[in-house]
Design a protein around this nucleic acid. Structure first.
Length: 800
RNA sequence: GCCGAUGUGGUGGAAUGGCAGACACAGUAGACUCAAAAUCUACCGCAGCAAUGUGUGCGGGUUCAAGUCCCGCCAUCGGCACCA
């Protein structure tokens, strides 16, 4: 037998699959469907990363198995190609981003095909193609019509390096998601999508989907629902109402001061009646200068200024309380004002200590001379609430009182903010809106979509957060679609996440030029049955796309309320030093080089064998050799091949392995599935032969993991194409051996082992155990207190 | 600070409360070879010649039996972070 030449074999089958469209989803809508989705890559200039290989290999295995199980499988791939890195390359190398994108997509396509992934290449999508972004713009306009798009001038997250405004999701931790620079606050009028309107639906929807617990949790935390109450405090001097949000209305009697955010509008409104307005202004401008980093990292030291000439009145007891401004209260959450209860909130406590404000205990149980007490306890100093010991009861009662007084009510708040939906850059979908001096913001008519990106000389962003499109007069100047008068086009483009917010819908019907996808196709394919991707997308892409999908669902344009029925996530591939792969650390593994040296099958096998799929695992140059040896041994089986249509001596072994591999693939326990096949191979070699029936089974079992070598072996020994075969079944009854070894323990310690027939009678086994020399020796002179028999597992004799 | 996850040989990692270390890497010895690579065979947690003892981050507990369950710590990683 020749040595296995992976180069020619892999090339041969990749060509075959490509030419025959082997993995195209079928048109047959009578078949049961399976829609497997992996996160489409951003085609960067660096080419693919081993992380991509691991990310796609999981559902690749599942998809290949599903096809053999008779499903009509949709396993698509595409390119999320709008984005800053491409644009930056274009600027640096003075090439049009279109050319850069096409070049990168070509590179990625070549690499993906070299791995032998069973994607449906007839459905490739590219978010930057006119036929695609036409519908991205179309959905945006539907949102515009639906009142979910608005412009607002507020403090935004701005990346000074990328020169773009970022959403909250894109500036997590105060860092730019693209270049990791510190972001700054900047007041600017930008576009928003009203995702908060869907906050509750996004939260509710999590109850009906099968996501990894951690994925659900992160989304819940990100949405950040809290329940509490709004309370209106009268301002003594002018009768104005200062409205606050609190989750602890039960502590209302403990309020000793109030705090408003530096940006709170009440200051502007009454600045003339505030004697220390200069001091306030100084503090406010100081806060405005602070970066996000300073504002969040220097949390320990509370700063603030008391507002003179403004006194609030507690609606429950009429007590007069001072009002401060401080940057520990944010304008963007709740009402931008809080009631401060230092006895029962640690931040208020710190502030009160620093400014010498009273601390009044209203809940017993802590020592408020030392720290704030946030636990439960009996209410004191609280008028009608005194004596209540249950927080829930106290909250209910207070809200009742507030409602009766007409100065407060129940309330709900979300941490999630509206989605800042814009980039001041070239390489993105133009926002299809026209600003008309007469009509205001007007949608570009549907017939004019796609609103194409105009050719430009220079992609450099403007210095003051202006899009390069703003410099192109021919693009900017237009007629208002409504009144026909002179108008100006919007010049911001959409953020990176727009195109990926609905791509899973386009895959269902990628060449449709009448609709974003036909209802027929959507009804058949949606929802995505299984979506796998990275944890880093859980609070960005996942939330955004669920939002778009739910919006389309409300319009009756998609058949399911949730896009993804199931979501899993792969762990990172770390460098061999155990650190995250990065160019600066020099620990990056190039998948191309691995394929060159070992072949695609080895690479696929190794990324799945290296550890628990969901956990991070370090790359090991030497461990990968184990996978190489395994495949060489698989190939070598052909040398010890005998005839035979039935399983031989290893029958139960085969049944067990089929069961193990079948179950483990579903549970994404690919590492143990591979280990089981390795163990079986070891047994076969120990036995010295394999017959045809057994080899056929092995080819099928291993095919999803190592498709090239198995396709070749199948073709040589049996003829035909493996992909057209059925997944192999097993017989539960035959998974058992004829005799099994059980453990005999005395007082929990193993003393001997016995071979018994499965499901032997308890008494018979106990008798065997007790008559064993070794056992008798240990229990000699002791009383048997207890005898435990776990069928087919062990006997434990307790003797004293 | 809050939330979550993880902690097992020299290494990556296996173990529905029931033989800890499957499978693999590395290592040791041997076979083949002029030699090397490749391949094959055997060994391979620690202590001990052995019988045996001991061992899953640390300290308790439940149980006939704990890596697994409970309580309290420690460490590492991830997410959120002045969210009222």
């Amino acid at each position: 037998m020749n040595r296995y030449d992976f180069r020619s074999v892999e090339e041969k089958w990749q060509k075959y699959w490509d030419e025959h469209g082997t993995f195209r989803a079928k048109d047959d809508k009578s078949m049961k469907k399976f829609y497997a989705l992996v996160e489409f890559p951003y085609p960067s200039g660096h080419g693919m990363h081993v992380g991509h290989i691991k990310a796609y290999s999981g559902l690749e295995v599942v998809s290949r198995k599903r096809r053999m199980e008779g499903y009509n499988v949709l396993f698509p791939i595409g390119f999320d190609a709008y984005g800053l890195p491409t644009e930056n390359t274009a600027i640096k190398d003075k090439i049009h981003p279109r050319i850069v994108t096409d070049r990168n997509i070509e590179k990625f396509t070549g690499q993906l095909k070299k791995v032998g992934f069973s994607f449906d290449w007839s459905r490739v999508i590219d978010t930057t193609e006119e036929g695609y972004y036409k519908w991205t713009q179309w959905i945006f306009l539907k949102m515009f019509e639906g009142g979910l798009v608005f412009r607002d001038k507020t403090a935004v997250n701005y990346c000074p390096s990328c020169k773009v405004v970022l959403s909250n999701e894109d500036s997590q931790g105060g860092k730019c998601d693209i270049c990791h620079s510190d972001i700054i606050r900047k007041t600017k009028e930008v576009w928003y999508l009203r995702i908060t309107e869907y906050a509750d639906k996004l939260l509710q929807g999590l109850e009906e989907v099968d996501y990894l617990p951690n994925v659900k949790l992160q989304q819940q935390n990100w949405i950040g629902k809290s329940t509490g109450a709004f309370v209106n405090f009268k301002i003594k001097e002018n009768g104005e109402e200062l409205r606050i949000y609190t989750t602890r209305p039960d502590t209302l009697f403990g309020v000793t001061f109030m705090v408003i955010a530096p940006e709170h509008p009440i200051i502007e409104k009454y600045r003339d009646s505030i004697p220390n307005i200069k001091e306030l202004d100084d503090y406010r401008s100081e806060c405005a200068k602070k970066s996000e980093f300073e504002r969040t990292q220097l949390v320990k030291d509370k700063t603030g200024v008391k507002i003179e000439g403004i006194t609030a009145v507690n609606p429950l007891n009429g007590k007069e309380i001072p009002v401060y401004i401080s940057d520990y209260v944010m304008m963007g959450y709740g009402t931008g004002a809080i009631m401060a209860v230092p006895a029962h909130d640690s931040r208020d406590y710190d502030f009160a200590k620093k400014f010498g404000i009273d601390i009044i205990e209203v809940i017993k149980g802590g020592d408020i001379s030392k720290e704030a007490y946030t636990g439960d306890g009996e209410m004191v100093n609280s008028g009608d609430l005194n004596g209540i010991t249950n927080k829930k009861d106290a909250i209910e009662k207070v809200i009742g009182i507030l409602e009766k007084l007409g100065c407060g009510e129940k309330g709900v708040q979300y941490k999630m903010k509206d989605w800042a939906f814009n980039r001041q850059r070239y390489w993105g979908e133009p926002i299809p809106i026209v600003h008309c001096p007469q009509c205001g913001m007007v949608a570009v008519p549907e017939t004019e979509l796609p609103l194409k990106l105009p050719p430009v000389e220079n992609y450099e962003p403007g210095t003051d957060g202006e899009s390069p499109l703003a410099k192109i007069e021919s693009f900017v100047n237009c007629k208002c679609p409504k009144c026909g008068g002179d108008a100006r086009r919007e010049t911001d483009t959409m953020p990176q996440w727009a195109g990926s917010s609905w791509y899973f819908l386009r895959y269902c019907d990628p060449h449709n030029d009448k609709e974003f996808a036909s209802q027929e196709a959507l009804k058949y394919w949606m929802p995505v049955d299984w979506y796998n991707g990275g944890m880093e997308h859980v609070t960005r892409h996942m939330i955004y796309s669920r939002f778009w999908h739910k919006f389309l669902y409300d319009l009756g344009l998609v058949p399911t309320s949730e896009p993804y029925a199931k979501r899993t996530a792969q762990g990172l591939v770390l460098g061999s030093d155990g650190e995250k792969m990065s160019k600066s650390r020099g620990n990056v593994i190039d998948p191309n080089e691995v394929i060159e040296e070992y072949g695609a099958d080895v690479l696929r096998l190794y990324v799945l064998f290296m550890g628990d799929y969901e956990k991070a695992a370090p790359w090991s140059e030497s461990s990968i050799k184990g996978c190489k040896r395994f495949l060489d041994r698989i190939w070598g089986l052909q040398e010890i091949l005998t005839d035979g249509e039935e399983y031989g001596a290893l029958r139960s072994n085969f049944h067990k392995t089929i069961k193990k591999v079948t179950d483990d693939i579903e549970a994404m326990k690919f590492n143990t599935a591979i280990a089981a096949m390795m163990a079986l191979i070891n047994d076969i070699y120990a036995l010295g032969s394999i017959n045809k029936a057994e080899l056929k089974t092995l080819c099928i079992l291993l095919n999803p993991f190592a498709p090239h070598i198995t396709e070749e072996m199948y073709n040589i020994n049996f003829g035909g194409i493996l992909n057209e075969q059925s997944w192999i079944g097993y017989d539960e009854a035959l998974c058992r051996d004829e005799t099994i070894e059980i453990v005999i323990q005395v007082n929990g310690k193993i003393r001997t082992k016995l071979n018994i027939v499965p499901d032997s009678d308890k008494d018979a086994v106990l008798e065997m155990a007790l008559s064993d020399d070794r056992v008798r020796e240990v229990i000699d002179g002791k009383n048997i207190v207890k005898q435990i028999y776990v069928p087919n597992k062990l006997v434990n004799i307790v003797a004293k």
